[in-house]
Nucleic acid binder design. Sequence first.
DNA 1: AGCTACAATGAAAGCGCTTCCATTTCTTCG
DNA 2: CGAAGAAATGGAAGCGCTTTCATTGTAGCT
Lengths: 341, 341
Amino acid sequence: MADYEKIKQNTASGPVTLADIAKLAGVSPVTVSRAINTPQLVKPRTLEAIERVIAKTGYVPNLLAGGLASRKTRLIAAVVPSVASTIFAETIEGLNAELVSAGYQLMLGLSGYDLSRELELTRAILARRPDGIILTGITHLKETRAMLTGAGLPIVEIWDSTPSPLDTAVGFSHAAVGSLVAGHLLIRGYDRYAQIGANDPRAVQRRDGFVDRLKGIAEVELPELEMNSPSTFRDGRVAMAQLLDKGKGSIGVFCSSDVVAHGALAEAHARGCKMPEDLAIIGFGDFDFAPHTHPPLTTVRIDRRDIGTKAARSILRKIDGDENVEAMINIDFHIVARGTA
Amino acid sequence: MADYEKIKQNTASGPVTLADIAKLAGVSPVTVSRAINTPQLVKPRTLEAIERVIAKTGYVPNLLAGGLASRKTRLIAAVVPSVASTIFAETIEGLNAELVSAGYQLMLGLSGYDLSRELELTRAILARRPDGIILTGITHLKETRAMLTGAGLPIVEIWDSTPSPLDTAVGFSHAAVGSLVAGHLLIRGYDRYAQIGANDPRAVQRRDGFVDRLKGIAEVELPELEMNSPSTFRDGRVAMAQLLDKGKGSIGVFCSSDVVAHGALAEAHARGCKMPEDLAIIGFGDFDFAPHTHPPLTTVRIDRRDIGTKAARSILRKIDGDENVEAMINIDFHIVARGTA
DNA sequence: AGCTACAATGAAAGCGCTTCCATTTCTTCG
DNA sequence: CGAAGAAATGGAAGCGCTTTCATTGTAGCT
């Protein structure tokens, strides 16, 4: 008890350490370490004594020291463009849930759709020696790639597909999404076809897939409007106005996200367009509000949370030394046909 | 050059260390450390030589080791209930932007509106020795409080107000919000008043503020529906149906979030209620979609990003040893009157 | 030239833990 | 009951950095 008081005092200036616990419990530091990390190797009586001391002192192990010594941090980092734009939020939740239940912690980095920020972030992240890293997309600066491959840790790229990932990728083909949407619109048949979209690599791929599918059948109109990701309701509204002003005839429009589609919808609604006869709108993401717009939004649904879950599982398997993790894990998507197409 | 090759080889199994850089640059480890952290103390010629070696080897300092030695991690942790429910996403973006520009990194924890998960999360976070921690709300388990105060680091509680924060708080009074909304509704005058809300502490406070303001004037009806946070569109819709089925007369409804309000709105719309004459709905949050519902949603706006920004600034000041950080930093809110009240 | 003052660098210790290997203590069984 | 093997524990070294304090180099002045 006297000892405890003394240490408590010292503690004022610095927190309790594993050595303090050892002294108080009358064992060596190694034993305390084992009590914490591999309790099955410690005799129940000893374990109990140690745990009592830990509880009494409020000892919290220092994972910096632990990580330095063991070269394992139980930390997984993820870089996403943004967390405010809904699209990635559920992926993060999925990721987090899966990691936490495996005893890992998630460290998040926000790149703001900016590749050079991704590079800086990657550097900062690697400096903390995570056990694995998750990146959004397959487009990275070559410096980022070099740094990453040099670091020799498991890497998972999410939200896109590629035959040659850095390590493993979990996602889907955005071009295929564009193509699917074009097909959906073609069956219904419109006089004009257009795409309203942002400029991030994935949105661009969706547009290209859309355009490709319509090649030789129809020219795809693209509003002349610089739309930086994340694109907004307003962007959609303005772009739709442009489209509607520019020509006549029925028109099928593919939007790069449900948010943009919602804006486009609002403009169309205000002008009294008849949907889906005169105007079709297809969004992307199947956001919460999609079933509740007027008319309800037809969109492409993909299980965003599942991307996170699968990414987490892949990276955990890799950390456990599993060599058989697939290089490309595909996520399903499909069109949810509602009122606008 | 020979040396470089040799180390490159060793590197295959372990990454380059500061000592390696020192050897290659022909200086001592301390000098390399200074070149990285306090370059102004190193002679330009030497600095340049070291930087060249760092660039060539792709050396990334180990912040675990650095943090262990210096007792500073440049890490700030934040615990929020969720990231998918929009409400906190912008706060996080604000927080992150501010921290990154100060050279800090944000580590996010998701508590899922669960206090015991908050406790576990706090323990896991403290184990990484962040320089500061940000928590959502002022309601915590006593174990969490004990652990936090014992850790002796700057703490900022966000999204609520209190005269006695653990350390510093950045937020606003939810009771005041409820009261303000009640006042707004009272001026217009309805036969009935109701609240549709989730069960997290802050939503409950908003409800209580609402009820208090109406005390002696009207009874506030509360749908009998268990709504766990985060509440959903569906919750709002179901609750509104209950309310509408249960009685007659015009009714003023306060919803605990815009999402819930949106659901309530949809139900009202479907039933052909005239708004805001027969039915008033006021949401909370002023989410992106609020101006675009039919009719546009009247709601309470608060600058969510600003909470993050201010929280970051406070914690950074505290880390810098500033003793004069206010205990309570208040964030403004106001009603945005649109079509539903 | 000699002395002071400051700039630049280095040596050694230590941050708090884990790993490896050695040692002690307990079981078990012939 | 003693040897062998397993279970439980401990000692020492080291993870990669920063800190403190000491040393060397370089001007600047008389």
